[in-house]
Simulated scan of single mutants.
Amino acid sequence: LGGRAVGVSIGEEIRCGGPTLEVIVNLRASPFAVGRQVLLEETLSGIARDHRVAIASANLVGGNDDLIFDGRSCAFSADGTLIARGSAFAEGIVTVDLARPVPQAVAPDDRAPESEVWRALVLGTRDYVHKCGFTSVLLGLSGGIDSSLVAAVAAEALGPENVLGVLLPSPHTSIESIEDARELGENLGIQVQCIPIAPMMEAFDGALAGVFAGLAPDATEENLQARIRAVVLMALANKFGSMLLSTGNKSEAAVGYATLYGDMAGGLGVIADVQKAMVYRIARWLNAQRPVIPGRVLTKPPSAELRPGQTDQEILPPYDILDAILHRHIDCFESPGEIVAAGYPAETVREVLRMVRQAEFKRRQAAPGLRVTDRAFSTDWHMPIAAKSWWQ
C-alpha cells in the first residue's frame, strides 16, 4: 500500500509471528475490562518495538448484550512509541502519520477504575436499552447505595426524562430511606412515584394464613416483600413500555443475597459485575464530580429493610472481607485452603464459598449483567449447578 508492506491481523492474531512487514493494521473487537487498556498498550508497544513494525489497532465501540467495547483505538511507531489514541467509550476518527515516531493525536484517558467502570456502565446501559427497542427504563428506589448508583447511570445514559424511580416502602422501610430516595430523584431530575406495599403484604398474609398456621415468620415473609415489589415494577414496565433495571451487585449475586423472582427481576443487571466496595467507590467518585447521591446513603449500614433493624452483616461478613474472599476465589481461582493461608478466617471462608456454590441456580436465572471485569458471572463463569465444588 503506497509502496509499503502492510499486513492485516484480526484480534489476538497480532501476537503471532508472520512475514516481514512495515505496517500492521489490527482490527479488534476487544471487550472492556477494568485495567485492561494498560496491558493492551504495553503489549502492542512491545510487538512494534521487537519487530520494528508500525501498528494501527482499531477497536470496536459500543455495547452488545453483556459485552462493552471501549474503543481506544491506538497507533504505535516502529520503535514502540504511542503516537495516537482514540477516545474511550466514544466513536471517533483519528488521523496519524505512522512514519513520525512522536505522539501526535493521543486522546486523554482517565484510567481511574471508578471512571472507567462508570463510563462503561453508561455506554453499556444506553446501547443495551436502545438495541432492545426501549427508550425508557424504571427501577425500584430503596434509598440504598445500589439503586442510587443504578439510577445515576440510567439518568446519564438515557436522560433523566426517560427514567422512573419507584419507591415501594413497607412497614419496615425507614423514614430516612424514603427521604434519601426522594432526594436522589430530585438531584438526578428523574420521575419518582411512591407505591406503599403494606396493603399487598396484608393480602398475602391473609391468603396464606391458613396454610402457614402454627409456623413462625421467617425468610418466607421477607422474600414475599421482594416479590411483591417485583410484581408492581413489572406491571409498571408492561404498562409504560419501559425496561426494568435490576440493581443487584456482584457481591450479592456471588453469595445469593437476593430474592429469586424478587429484587433479581429485570431486563438488565446494570451493576451485576461490580462488587459492593466498588459501588461505594464509584458513588464517591461521582459525587466528587457533581453531588447527586445523598451523603447519608454512603454512610448508613446497608440493609434490605425486610424486618425491623435488619442489616446485611447479620448474614454476610463485612463487605471488605467478603469482596476480598470472592476476588481470590472467583478471579484468582484460589481454593479455600489457599484463601485461609492468606490470612482469612477459615470458618468465614468456608461459609462464603458454600454460599457461592449454593447460589449457582439463582445466577442462572438472573437478568443479563453488564461485564466490566475479566471474570463476570454472565460470560466467564461456567459452573454446573448439581455438582461438587471444583476444589473437592
Rank of each mutant, 00 (worst) to 15 (best):
L1S: 14
G7V: 11
G11E: 11
E13Y: 03
E22K: 10
I24L: 13
S30V: 14
P31D: 03
F32V: 02
E41I: 07
E41R: 05
G46V: 13
I47D: 02
D50V: 07
H51F: 12
S57M: 11
C74M: 11
D79M: 09
G80Y: 06
F89M: 03
F89H: 01
A90M: 12
V94F: 01
R100S: 12
R119A: 06
G124N: 11
D127G: 00
H130G: 06
S136R: 15
L139T: 03
L139F: 01
I145K: 01
S147A: 02
S147Q: 04
A155T: 06
L158V: 03
S170P: 07
S174C: 09
N187M: 09
Q191N: 12
I197A: 01
A198V: 15
P199A: 11
M200G: 04
M201W: 02
D205W: 09
G210S: 06
A213L: 14
G214T: 13
D218C: 05
Q225E: 13
N238M: 14
K239S: 10
T247S: 13
G262P: 12
D263M: 08
I271Y: 03
N287D: 08
N287M: 10
P302F: 07
R307Y: 14
T311Q: 11
D323R: 14
H327W: 06
E334Y: 05
E338C: 04
V340E: 02
G343I: 02
E347R: 04
R357L: 02
R357P: 02
R364Q: 13
D374S: 06
A376C: 13
W381V: 03
M383P: 07
